[in-house]
Design a protein around this nucleic acid. Sequence first.
DNA 1: GTACTTGCAAACGCTTTGCACTCTC
DNA 2: GAGAGTGCAAAGCGTTTGCAAGTAC
Lengths: 151, 151
Amino acid sequence: MGKKNPTLSEQRAAFRDYLARKQLKMTPQRMRILDAFLASQGHMTSEDLYHRVKKADPTVGQATVYRTLKLLADSGIAQEVDFSEGVARYEHGFHQEHHDHLICTRCRTTVEVSDEEIERLQESLAAKHGFRLTGHSMCLYGICPRCRATD
Amino acid sequence: MGKKNPTLSEQRAAFRDYLARKQLKMTPQRMRILDAFLASQGHMTSEDLYHRVKKADPTVGQATVYRTLKLLADSGIAQEVDFSEGVARYEHGFHQEHHDHLICTRCRTTVEVSDEEIERLQESLAAKHGFRLTGHSMCLYGICPRCRATD
DNA sequence: GTACTTGCAAACGCTTTGCACTCTC
DNA sequence: GAGAGTGCAAAGCGTTTGCAAGTAC
């Protein structure tokens, strides 16, 4: 478990490969969006990324960012996450170990957490009902230490 | 754990109390929406409920259903759940034991599951990061036995 | 040269809201 | 009768899509 994170150029190559496999084309826009995505951290919305990309190239359209994020997710470079806010968020997809999220409902801070025991129990819970698991999302909502301190 | 489910008239009374406490009024529309909600099962969308209510009274507006569902959720009679579909769903809120959802991504069947061990681990995971948990949502996505059979 | 891509603006689906009217308490 | 609630239609939001022009391969 836990190969180390791919380098920037490995990721670029991976995206190129993905595009080729799907008979899609590499374009300057896609390149810029990929780079902006890789250069950022956390859980970005399409909007976030759009603004970042726009700084580098004001001509890029919002629709292209939406479209490219879908490709990044499909290629595995990005991972869509849903914090029930009504916006899609994306995080880097190369986190080998699955992780879940601990979200402060007051300040929106999020912490990535993981627990092998929980993973294992989830699998067996699914198996007990005859399901083959393809994915899951677990969000724990609460109040973070900092917000608790300022109560 | 596990008081038995409240009766229909207990729930009506609970809603009435909630409204009174908030200085809101009971109306025939709210009554009908509550009844339709209680008479249904599963994970309903506002749309679902709107259609049901409409059969009993075609004059009820969609906005009223949205508004009333929010009240039902706030009062604890309903519980909002999010299966990442882009629609809000509501289930009965009187399930005392917390449960999570196992969702078939092919046929959308959902099964309610619960596991005390997982609950406990979630608590301790949150505590480890100094969070005070206020809620959580866990959705396990997979393929249900029936869909697996027709592969 | 042939698809595939782009930016734009319009359309989308779900949800919320402003309004004039109506009703509950 | 004062304050809430209603239905309607319009607006809001994040996201998707149709299109004509542009571009990677």
